[in-house]
Nucleic acid binder design. Structure first.
Length: 267
DNA sequence: TCTCAGGGGCGAT
DNA sequence: ATCGCCCCTGAG
């Protein structure tokens, strides 16, 4: 495995916090089951040992995936100037934003709608175990996340095995749409079955690289009203715009820190 | 066993 | 713009 030094990188909060649901802990190592690809990470002092499969040693990929191309120090310096984000940074130092594969992010977040994190992870694990495509890793057979074309061919009954319930037809229909070349913008995303404003913002943030927005989930609404004293509202765009107005090009990171802070500390 | 809510979207109104 | 409902699970 390759060694990569990581400074100020909170691996646990980043990989298991609700950005990417594909990570599993196996014998103390972290494994991500992606489309046509596996990431294997062994955390160690000051960094990680890592490997990618089946195309090995793909440093360009993992560096981009882990979000290491961003100027993290500048982001943190900015967020230290605001009371609540500064507090959140103390609880979750080194929290990052991942850059994930587009198709898989789209499909995962359709599954995530109105489910809690353990339930989402479970559905995705079943999807991989049931329908994943086998590759060889270190002499052993391992399943990857099913390809978009494979998911598009599944029946809704098969998809229902993953406990996605009423989302099954959305997943199938959107997988079919993904087989054509789509614009990766908000309007296009929201036009896809199973994708509304919130899921769209997840995709834009965790896959397309948007940094001037943050997905507003139930915790986001609480941050808006309880943490910042705004009047309660159910208007998604109103809260979304408020975040962007307040944090500008640092909104995605502000939202990520505040989400973890609200969900785990304030509650 | 029961209730409530979950990193929401859809369709009717 | 609002609102009830949707399948299922995890948490209390």
């Amino acid at each position: 495995m390759n060694y990569l030094r990581l400074e100020n990188y909170n691996l646990e909060a980043t990989l298991f916090g609700g950005q990417d649901f594909n990570w599993q802990i196996i014998d103390g190592e972290y494994w991500a089951f992606l489309q046509k690809q596996i990431i294997r990470i062994k955390p160690t002092d000051g960094g990680i040992y890592w490997q990618t499969y089946p195309d090995k040693d793909n440093y360009t990929f993992i560096r981009n995936y882990l979000g290491l191309r961003e100027n993290y120090e500048e982001i943190i310096n900015y967020l230290q100037n605001e009371k609540n984000t500064a507090k959140a940074i103390k609880y979750f130092p080194g929290l990052r934003i991942l850059n994930q594969n587009f198709d898989q992010t789209v499909l995962n977040f359709i599954m995530s709608a109105n489910k809690n994190l353990p339930a989402i992870r479970n559905s995705i694990k079943i999807l991989i175990d049931e329908f994943g495509e086998t590759i060889k890793v270190e002499g052993k057979k391992i399943k990857t996340y099913p390809s978009t074309s494979l998911i598009a061919k599944l029946t809704t009954e098969e998809l229902a095995k993953t406990k996605v319930g009423y989302r099954a037809p959305y997943i199938k229909k959107t997988a079919k749409r993904l087989l054509k070349d789509l614009n990766q913008n908000r309007e296009t995303l929201i036009s896809l079955p199973g994708i509304g404003p919130k899921v769209s913002d997840c995709i834009l943030t965790y896959s397309v690289g948007a940094r001037d927005i943050t997905p507003i989930d139930r915790w986001g609404f609480r941050i808006y009203s309880d943490l910042y004293g705004n009047a309660e509202t159910n208007n998604y765009d109103k809260v979304r715009d408020w975040f962007t107005e307040k944090f500008g090009e640092y909104t995605a990171y502000a939202g990520q820190f505040l989400f973890e802070y609200m969900r785990n500390i304030v509650k």
